[in-house]
Computed example of a mutant assay.
Amino acid sequence: MDAEFTDATTVPPGFGHNHVHCMLDITRAEMAKPNYSFEKRQRELAKKKKQDEKDAKKRAAKDAAKTGSEPAAQG
């Protein structure tokens, strides 16, 4: 029982079938859980960044059209 067991299907000497299930349950409990709130926040930030870029592009096009028509109106 001193040896490390990397394969959960390998039953160590002296362990019954039930002990393997306990080993699997411990492994599942130790696994990292996904952080859904972090992922959601990252999606929201990406969406906001994309929208800001879109708005900046529209603003630039509007300013270009505005400055292009002003000299003709004043002229």
Rank of each mutant, 00 (worst) to 15 (best):
L24V: 12
E44S: 08
M23C: 08
F38V: 12
H17I: 10
Q74Y: 14
Q51P: 00
K49R: 12
R43S: 07
P12W: 02
N18S: 10
E70D: 15
A29C: 10
Q51L: 09
T6R: 08
D55H: 06
E4K: 06
F15G: 00
D25T: 06
G68I: 02
P71L: 03
G75V: 15
R41D: 03
M31N: 08
P13M: 00
P12S: 01
R28F: 12
E53K: 11
Y36V: 11
S69F: 01
D2R: 12
A60N: 12
A64Y: 05
V20T: 08
A60S: 13
D55N: 13
K50I: 01
S69Q: 14
E44M: 07
R59P: 00
T10E: 13
E44P: 04
C22N: 09
P71K: 09
Q51S: 08
A60C: 05
K54A: 05
T67P: 05
A3L: 08
R43E: 10
Q51K: 06
T9H: 07
A65E: 15
C22R: 08
Q51M: 06
R43C: 03
A65L: 14
Q51A: 09
D63Q: 12
K66I: 05
Q74A: 15
A8Q: 09
T10P: 00
D55T: 08
F15I: 00
A73T: 15
A32M: 10
E44G: 01
A8E: 11
N35G: 10
R41V: 03
D55G: 01
Q74W: 14
H19V: 04
M23Q: 01
D52Y: 06
A73F: 14
P34N: 07
D55K: 12
D55Q: 07
M1C: 07
A73S: 15
A65M: 14
P71I: 06
F5S: 00
E30P: 00
E44Y: 04
T9Q: 05
E4D: 03
Q51C: 01
C22T: 09
C22H: 07
S69M: 14
L45C: 04
H19K: 05
H17E: 14
G68K: 13
P13V: 01
A56E: 12
F15N: 00
K62G: 02
K62N: 07
T27N: 11
K66V: 01
D25G: 05
D2C: 04
T9F: 08
Q74H: 15
G14H: 02
M1F: 03
A73K: 15
V20R: 01
H19T: 09
D2W: 04
G14T: 05
L24R: 13
D25N: 11
K54F: 03
R28Y: 11
E70R: 15
R59Q: 11
